[in-house]
Computed example of a mutant assay.
Amino acid sequence: MDAFAVLADAAHRPVDSANALVRGLDLDALHARPDGKGNSIAWLIWHAGRQLDSQVAELTGRDQVWHTGDWASRTGIHRDDQESGFGDDDGEVESLRVSDPSVLPAYLSAAVDSLLHHLEEIDESALDDVVDTRWDPPVTRGVRLVSVIDDAVAHVAQAQYVRGIVADWSIGY
């Protein structure tokens, strides 16, 4: 398995998990925040997609799929176009609502598709390109891609945990 196949497999995993997570989920559970704190399932899946989408767009110089796919209208989440949830306060988390749970993994999937399209355009040596010199050591394209995938996995896993609390659900591991 080459580096691109590994990245592609890893990138698809949070999408598969998010699809299973929202299946049969009612809107109350989707927007519930355990003990009225933390992040809802809706917010976590939305943020998983937004962070991945915005960072891949920055890497590629292309527009975010949030814009090109009209995801604000499709999700009903009308926030500033550059917002991805970083730094959201309780009110911002609480106000994030969608009417169809399945639209959230669909957006995450579209963001992953953008990442996969980027992988199709580059050769393996491009994974070593330095893309961010603000860190020590500087961040390479490969490290950034692993980072955005890891962040999506972490947020979907958090959403799974929340579902277990608010909807008495287990993914059966």
Rank of each mutant, 00 (worst) to 15 (best):
1 M>L: 10
172 G>M: 08
107 Y>K: 14
60 T>V: 05
28 D>P: 02
32 A>C: 06
28 D>E: 14
143 V>D: 04
29 A>K: 02
72 A>R: 12
55 Q>D: 08
169 W>G: 00
120 E>C: 09
101 P>F: 00
92 E>Q: 13
44 L>E: 02
18 A>E: 09
150 D>A: 15
85 G>D: 00
148 V>K: 03
93 V>D: 00
104 L>E: 06
142 G>E: 01
88 D>Y: 11
56 V>M: 08
71 W>H: 11
67 H>E: 13
19 N>V: 11
42 A>D: 01
113 D>K: 07
141 R>N: 05
159 A>W: 03
171 I>M: 12
79 R>T: 06
19 N>Q: 13
23 R>G: 02
34 P>T: 05
107 Y>H: 12
143 V>G: 02
139 V>N: 08
38 G>P: 02
19 N>K: 14
158 Q>L: 05
30 L>D: 00
3 A>W: 14
70 D>H: 10
168 D>S: 11
97 R>G: 07
136 D>T: 14
155 H>W: 05
127 L>Y: 14
72 A>I: 03
97 R>A: 10
142 G>D: 07
34 P>A: 05
47 H>N: 04
65 V>P: 01
97 R>E: 07
127 L>G: 08
63 D>I: 06
145 L>C: 03
81 D>K: 13
51 Q>R: 10
61 G>R: 06
44 L>H: 01
139 V>D: 03
103 V>G: 04
110 A>R: 07
80 D>Y: 10
140 T>R: 01
16 D>H: 10
12 H>R: 13
94 E>D: 13
113 D>W: 05
37 K>C: 01
64 Q>H: 03
70 D>S: 13
53 D>C: 11
139 V>E: 09
88 D>W: 09
71 W>K: 10
170 S>C: 07
35 D>C: 08
19 N>R: 15
14 P>E: 11
69 G>A: 15
92 E>M: 10
